[in-house]
């Protein structure tokens, strides 16, 4: 097992209703200097979360004790920009296991799937409904069920299904990663490589 498996998650959520949240906001480049995958959560949303003197910015949602949970809800086009997997690591390391948005950037989505953070793409209308529910009640509970590919606002029962290809779904449910798969077909790859000049 390469990472935590993901089956069903019920949690409150942290809302970030801003569009085009890029990976430089999720984790600025100056915090990418580690050579191990450790401590990236400390710098998640660093420049939105802390002043330049390292004191917390009180108006940022991660510094507001009203909001907590393992689900991060972001505005449209979440994770655009750089390929840095550190962005997904920071989200995971902070404690999130699922990111919900109405649209994800490709590389970020892939990176999440590769480390066991579930990206859930919902309709713009359902995203607005989630933001509204949390605004009205920060203790709003959300259930994300990977097996049935369904996300639900537990109180109202309002729900929507989401897409994930069956290969990645199986990986997430079991905590497998692509290297496990690729290693099992190594001879096929070697055959292919022998026919492919450098």
């Amino acid at each position: 097992m390469a990472y935590d498996s993901f089956n069903k998650l019920t949690s409150t959520a942290v809302p970030l209703p801003i569009e085009n949240i890029d990976t430089d906001q999720i984790i600025p480049a100056r915090f990418l200097k580690a050579t191990e995958r450790k401590g990236f959560g400390d710098n998640l949303f660093r420049d939105w979360r802390f002043n330049q003197d390292d004191t917390p910015k009180q108006d940022f949602v991660l510094n507001n004790p009203t909001y907590s949970g393992k689900i991060l809800i972001g505005g449209r086009n979440f994770g655009s920009g750089s390929s840095r997997e550190h962005a997904a690591w920071a989200i995971y390391d902070y404690g999130f296991r699922c990111v919900v948005s109405s649209f994800f950037a490709d590389i970020f989505r892939n990176n999440c799937l590769n480390i066991g953070v579930l990206p859930v793409q919902v309709s713009p209308a359902f995203l607005a409904e989630i933001f509204e529910a949390i605004e009205n009640d920060p203790t709003t509970s959300i259930t994300v069920d990977l097996t049935s590919q369904k996300i639900q606002l537990d109180k109202s029962g309002s729900a929507e299904s989401f897409e994930i290809n069956s290969y990645k779904k199986e990986n997430m449910l079991n905590g497998y990663d692509d290297i496990d798969y690729l290693n099992n077909i190594k001879s096929e790859i070697e055959d292919f490589a022998s026919k492919t000049p450098l």
Partner: peptide, 20 residues
Amino acid sequence: FGIGTSEVEMVLATQCIMQP
């Protein structure tokens, strides 16, 4: 195209990545 670090590891280990 750009890839994440998990995929860098895949390419080093198997010279392949898995993408739709």
